[in-house]
Design a binder for these strands. Structure first.
Length: 347
DNA sequence: AAGTCGGGGCG
DNA sequence: CGCCCAGACTT
């Protein structure tokens, strides 16, 4: 039996029940695909349910404020997805009268929609035979055909896209695309793949060579950089604190945080106390400084390890506009900040 | 082509 | 601890 038929047969028996598999509404498919970028189903599922409940249509999403969308996205990471999601919803409503693009090529024009997502939506919603290539597809195909080309280089990207495009079931691209991803996610897994009970056991080249876990081949990524973050947690006598909206291009864009002082290396109490005497929020006012966590909290991201200290700054009155500590939960904050807020009793 | 962007989970 | 995840975008 040919690859695509065997795969779709496997899928019909083994697929998980998931809410976005109960619809072909492009708004819901688009929403699920954005949420699931670089995100496992288990992690993304509750966010999908929350977004569908909060924004049942693209019009509801377009009418929301960005800070509200970011708040609902809080904790999921890669926050540009949420900003692009919101911007694209506005574009669909305002420029396209609420009608989603219906072709791979047109879908690519939406912010946050690249080759993978455009292929997924076009195939699932409109039966366009455009092959998806995600992390699962790289793994399944590199093993089945024993392909050593690194999957994360430009050569590999082209090669695997072309191969998937040759394999896709022209009559049922929607099922094929979802099947190959589901197979990678649940059977042909990175560790301990279920080769013993695999329908491709007799034709998988990696299995024949006993090298299944040598695939896919990848170019090593750079090691994470170390940074030292010091957050100033102001507390005034009247129960206010200061949070700021992150600007610029870096991490956590448009999320909120306590005023941040980044240092080149870890600082002790005396060094830091002297350093922030000149801070614009502390100039010429009395304050009491105490360190919340004597041992730095290490927050690990893909490209940065953040060694973090939270400094409690007691003042009589704030030197800038503040918020009541009771209102802090209304703001979208990074997980690092959210964990502190939960652990620290503000009252 | 290489960096950047999060956070959770697994062995 | 390193690697992976229904990738996209910038430099």
């Amino acid at each position: 039996m040919q690859f695509s038929k065997k795969l779709i047969n496997w899928y019909s028996v083994n697929k998980r029940v998931l809410p976005w598999r109960e619809t072909k509404n492009p708004y819901y498919i688009w929403l699920s695909e954005i949420i699931l970028q670089q995100t496992q189903v288990k992690q993304g599922l509750p966010y999908y349910e929350a977004f569908v409940a909060q924004y049942p249509t693209v019009f509801d999403l377009a009418n929301a404020e960005e800070r509200e969308v970011l708040k609902l996205w809080q904790g999921l990471g890669y926050y540009s997805r949420a900003r692009n999601l919101h911007a694209s919803a506005k574009h669909v409503v305002n420029a396209l009268k609420g009608e989603f693009p219906k072709t791979y090529k047109e879908l690519l024009n939406l912010k946050g929609v690249g080759d993978y997502t455009a292929s997924a939506i076009a195939s699932i919603c409109y039966n366009e035979p455009t092959a998806v290539v995600d992390g699962n597809v790289y793994r399944v195909l590199s093993r089945y055909f024993a392909i050593c080309t690194p999957t994360n280089g430009s050569k590999g990207v082209k090669e695997f896209k072309l191969l998937a495009q040759e394999l896709i079931d022209q009559d049922n691209p929607a099922e094929f695309n979802q099947a190959i991803m589901e197979f990678g996610a649940t059977w042909c897994t990175p560790k301990n793949p279920k080769c013993i009970s695999c329908v491709f056991q007799d034709s998988c080249l990696a299995f024949a060579h006993n090298k299944v876990e040598d695939y896919p081949v990848k170019i090593k990524s750079a090691k994470a950089k170390v940074k030292y973050f010091n957050f100033l947690v102001f507390i005034s006598d009247d129960g206010n604190t200061i949070i700021e909206r992150r600007k610029g291009k870096g991490i956590w864009q448009n999320l909120y945080q306590f005023p941040l002082v980044e240092t080149k290396k870890a600082v002790d109490y005396t060094t830091f106390r002297n350093q922030i005497e000149q801070h614009h929020l502390l100039k010429n006012i009395p304050f009491k400084l105490s360190l919340y966590n004597s041992e730095a909290i290490v927050h690990k991201l893909s490209h940065q390890h953040l060694y973090t200290k939270f400094w409690i700054v007691n003042v009589n009155r704030l030197h800038a506009e503040g918020i009541s500590v009771n209102d802090i939960e209304q703001f979208a904050v990074p997980v690092l900040i959210g964990k502190f807020i939960d652990a620290f009793n503000f009252k």
